[in-house]
Amino acid sequence: MSCEEMRELFSASLESSLDAALTLKLESHIQMCSACRTELDGLRLVWDKLDVLETVEPPKLLHGEIMERIDAERESVQRPGLLVRLRQMFPSPRALAAAAAFAFVLLAGYSLHYTQQATLGPIHFPVVQSQPNHFTPASITSIKQNALHQHLWEITIKAADSEPGMLSCTIESPSAAVSPSQVNIQLKPGETRHVQFYLAGSGTVANLTVVSRYQNLNGENTSQIGLSQ
């Protein structure tokens, strides 16, 4: 084994986690090779020093600064709930039901292996168990019905600026009334995207089942967000 290969064993050797055979190899190499011997001694010294690094005190004002930012953030998200805003946007129950169906498809898209059945009638809105909205990785910023094609809807979705990486989202909708039945999107932090859906028939979607996946670099992937009253 070369010196370089021997040096790959150094940490394990200092932690006594090398197996007997490799320990023997390393020991006999060290006896013959002064360069590696010096290196290993040096590493031991560095290790000892690392283990006694002192801690530093955070500035006294830091906690206040953090809570100030949190308070500002809390204030900025205490706006009317999505459903309230939807009601303002869509005065007719049918239009709202259609919009809510799409919102539901998209919102549910942010949960991991999340399956939900929602029955939408003229006035039954999907009520999905929801976390407070300011924890969500993305939000719907608008839902628009195409002026010329009443079955075509456009949803605008925006990823939070705070997201550490790409948000990947797959939205599958087995319902025949919604097309496309599957949409894959990726959002960068802060990115805004428009997704178009075509809603067939009268705008009523019964038993809409959404299976979706959401992933980001943070790995903690499950968030249940949705419409709540």
């Binding site: 949190i70 953030e73 976390q131 924890f135 990785p137 903690e220 499950t222 968030s223």
Partner: peptide, 8 residues
């Protein structure tokens, strides 16, 4: 603060 809702 923003992500704690997703801590599982």
């Amino acid at each position: 603060f923003r992500a704690i809702g997703r801590f599982e």
